[in-house]
Design a protein around this nucleic acid. Sequence first.
DNA 1: ACTAGCCCCTGGGAGC
DNA 2: TGCTCCCAGGGGCTAG
Length: 276
Amino acid sequence: MPELPEVETIVRQLRETALNKKFWGFESKHKSTVQPNLQVYEERLQGARILDITRRGKFIIFILDNKMRLVIHLRMTGRLMWEKEQGRGKYIRAIFKFSDGTRLYFSDVRKFGRIWLAHEDEYEKLSGIAKLGPEPLAENFTVDQLTHRLQNKTGALKNNLLNQENIAGIGNIYADEIAHRIKIHPTAPLKKLKPEHYKLLHEAIIYCLSEGIKHCGVTLSDFVGTNGKQGEHQKYLKIYGREGQKCHNCKTIIQKIRAAGRGTFFCPQCQINLTN
DNA sequence: ACTAGCCCCTGGGAGC
DNA sequence: TGCTCCCAGGGGCTAG
């Protein structure tokens, strides 16, 4: 379940290992993984050099020297790795080959992941990217910006944190961590948040995502870096996955419910609902 | 314009 | 052992 910190971890690893490499072949036997179609890759990827690798929300973006952009979304179980994994060969959905003989494998058990190849003038129109909200770790992400984007929205706090059109990159794990840090219930109506809550929310978003990056992401089942290494941040999670354990703030037993269609962890004591 | 629910997929775990 | 069912959740889509 790669979210912003896990994707950022991968992008940083790719920046250290893939810059200036030249694409020299592409293979994919899985049609729906590759957008718009294999022919575009054969025509436009061959010989292209990687100028930079960046990130937008949970999308990985390769900037190429032929005005094309290679965009990858890992969704739930996607992996990008330099080595073929033992016993997982059958999950390889695409192979990027480079002129130096190296290969980057895209594997994905559940086939939700997607790869796009698009011209730089067209890529922002790609489904999902066009409507993305601001980058929460960008310097221009301010309390005012967050407040203005959210203050008139309806629905629960968690639903709005998960909505990529509000803020880019937050997924289920970090949404729970953020709600816990500001001590507000995930299902609390966003409309009840006051200006001081937005200040806390802004701080919590940046803190939780930054801590995730610091520990190279969360590995609960699927996430690994391009070198196959797991993340460490699961050891530092305060609420996600801790049902039945004690809240670090108040020692109350953490509960699990279903909210926003997701498994949702919260402390019934210190996370207030704002409805009273 | 919103939400709930379904769908895409497969592996892993629980229960019988 | 082996079968069935449920769960994991990012995001697109549709019905209401």
